[in-house]
C-alpha cells in the first residue's frame, strides 16, 4: 500500500463535486473503457479515464476515493466503479458501473480460456503456461514487496509480516484467523506509532 497518500493533519475540504452528472450510458461506457484497457492493473487506467479524459473527479478526490477503496474489501477499481456509480445514480448507477468494468473483460477472458483449452493438449502450450506462471509468480512477489510501504522501515512491521506468512503457510491457519489475530496486533501497534 505504498501508494497511500500521506495524510495531511488538517486536510483542506475537497472541492464539492461539480453539478455535472454523467448519463447512465456515459457512466457505463467510462467503466467499460477502463475495464477493457486495463492490462496488468486497472488503477492507472481509472485515473486516466476519470481524471484526465472525462474530468469527472479531481486528482485529489481520486486519491481520496482510492484510499477508501483500499480500506474496504474488494479490488480497488471495481470498488471505485461502485463508489462513483452510487454518487451519480444511486444503487442502479453502482450496478451499471460494476457491469461496465466487469462484464466485457469477463467475456473476453472466457473466450481466451476456451482458446487456451482447445490447444492445451499441445506440449508447447503447457510449456508456455508454465513459463507464464513462473513470470506471473515473480510479478506477484514484486507487487507484494512494493505494497509494503512504510512498514519495511519498522522492525515490528517486518516481524508482523513474517508472522502472517508463517502462520498461513506453515501453521496452516485459516486466512480469517490470521487477519483477525495479526490484524488486531497491527492496529494496536499502529495506534502506538510502531508501524
Amino acid at each position: 500500500m505504498s501508494d497511500l497518500p500521506a495524510l495531511d493533519p488538517s486536510p483542506a475540504p475537497s472541492p464539492r463535486p461539480t453539478p455535472f452528472v454523467p448519463s447512465r450510458l456515459a457512466l457505463f461506457l467510462a467503466f467499460l473503457q477502463i475495464g477493457v484497457s486495463a492490462f496488468g492493473g486497472a488503477l492507472p487506467w481509472g485515473r486516466r479515464v476519470l481524471v484526465e479524459e472525462r474530468g469527472w473527479i479531481s486528482e485529489k478526490e481520486f486519491t481520496e476515493i482510492i484510499t477508501i477503496c483500499q480500506a474496504a474489501p474488494g479490488p480497488n477499481m471495481v470498488n471505485m466503479a461502485v463508489f462513483i456509480g452510487t454518487r451519480y445514480h444511486g444503487v442502479l448507477g453502482a450496478l451499471i458501473a460494476f457491469v461496465g468494468i466487469i462484464g466485457v473483460p469477463l467475456a473476453i477472458l472466457l473466450v481466451v480460456n476456451e482458446v487456451y483449452h482447445s490447444y492445451a493438449h499441445l506440449p508447447q502450450v503447457k510449456s508456455g503456461m508454465h513459463g507464464m506462471a513462473a513470470a506471473a509468480t515473480a510479478y506477484l512477489l514484486y507487487i507484494s514487496l512494493k505494497m509494503g510501504g512504510p512498514f519495511w522501515k519498522r522492525p515490528m512491521g517486518i516481524v508482523l509480516c513474517a508472522a502472517a506468512t508463517a502462520l498461513a503457510m506453515f501453521a496452516h491457519w485459516h486466512m480469517a484467523l490470521v487477519l483477525l489475530v495479526c490484524g488486531s496486533v497491527g492496529v494496536v501497534l499502529s495506534k502506538r506509532g510502531k508501524l
Binding site: T67, H130, A133, C161, T165, M169, G183, L189, S190
Partner: peptide, 26 residues
C-alpha cells in the same frame, strides 16, 4: 482510517507472500 490501514498493511503483504510460496509448488 489511516491507523487501521497502517496496522493491516504488514498482514496483507505477509499473506501475499504465502500466496507466492504456494504458487511455486507448481
Amino acid at each position: 482510517r489511516e491507523i487501521v490501514l497502517r496496522g493491516l498493511a504488514p498482514v496483507t503483504v505477509g499473506l501475499m507472500f504465502a500466496g507466492c510460496m504456494l504458487l511455486t509448488r507448481g
